[in-house]
Nucleic acid binder design. Sequence first.
DNA 1: CCACTCAACCCTGACGTGAGGGACGAGTTC
DNA 2: GAACTCGTCCCTCACGTCAGGGTTGAGTGG
Lengths: 148, 148
Amino acid sequence: MRASAAPGDRMAYQGGMTGPRRERLVQIGQVAEQTGLSLRTIRFYEENGLVIPTTRSEGGFRLYSDSDVARLEVIKRMKPLGFSLEEMQELLTLLAELDSGSGDRERLRDRLRMFHEAATARVTALQEQLAVAEGFADTLAGHLDAQR
Amino acid sequence: MRASAAPGDRMAYQGGMTGPRRERLVQIGQVAEQTGLSLRTIRFYEENGLVIPTTRSEGGFRLYSDSDVARLEVIKRMKPLGFSLEEMQELLTLLAELDSGSGDRERLRDRLRMFHEAATARVTALQEQLAVAEGFADTLAGHLDAQR
DNA sequence: CCACTCAACCCTGACGTGAGGGACGAGTTC
DNA sequence: GAACTCGTCCCTCACGTCAGGGTTGAGTGG
């Protein structure tokens, strides 16, 4: 943990004269802190084309915009569904296309429906896993009691 | 699917004159079928010392006794708890020691308690995952509705 | 009765995969 | 100059997958 407002603290990089909007840009450490993902994970997602930082500093530091961070947070919410990175990417672009109103409506909806089906299937699987897990935990508790 | 009672069918190997008990021994394929684990997984568990078949045929086929299969089924119940193979092995021997009444009572109970704690922690984590997963599935459903 | 064949089953060994973790030495930013 | 970040590399875990060969037991032939 870093002490709050310690001497070494850094503010979000504001992007020199390059951008006209003076958008809020943060570097990877802050993103990690906000999202709870590790640096390694965030870089890994980039490698796989999931979230590519809007820009980089002159020295090469990754700089993330708010929407980059939002994307990461969506991914985080998807994770428990057990989708692969590839699937997540597809779903992300799919949602973006729906939002922007581009692409073949019909097909988009179809693919979205498939994702939804996969998701609910996965939810069911998780429920089953949970039941088994609870069962086993109880078994352990039983063994503990038996040994009192 | 294999046709039932096809010419090529084989019965469970009974172990020639070597065993006095004529114990029921099955080979890996049947075990896989019963437990729902893959052949690879079962072999992998053996590699890691989790379940070693009671014996082998002359030609080297793995032959599993009922208790071997039972062990595999216990492992299967543990899996959703996300323990590592090493931890599962420890827990298995731990339970065996408790059953057989060997070893330091005090210490055994302590370790068992730790496993139980880990298990309940894991159950909580699973519940959270499930909640997130359900939430995301709902989000998807929402997007579907919005596109009607 | 023994030899042979056949399909189904099984063996070991090696490499591949997915989703990251950890360490490194060098560079950047504040 | 302290804190942060970079890219590169190798490591892990729980298997999947492929290759190439051996085993088993029932059926067939002599």
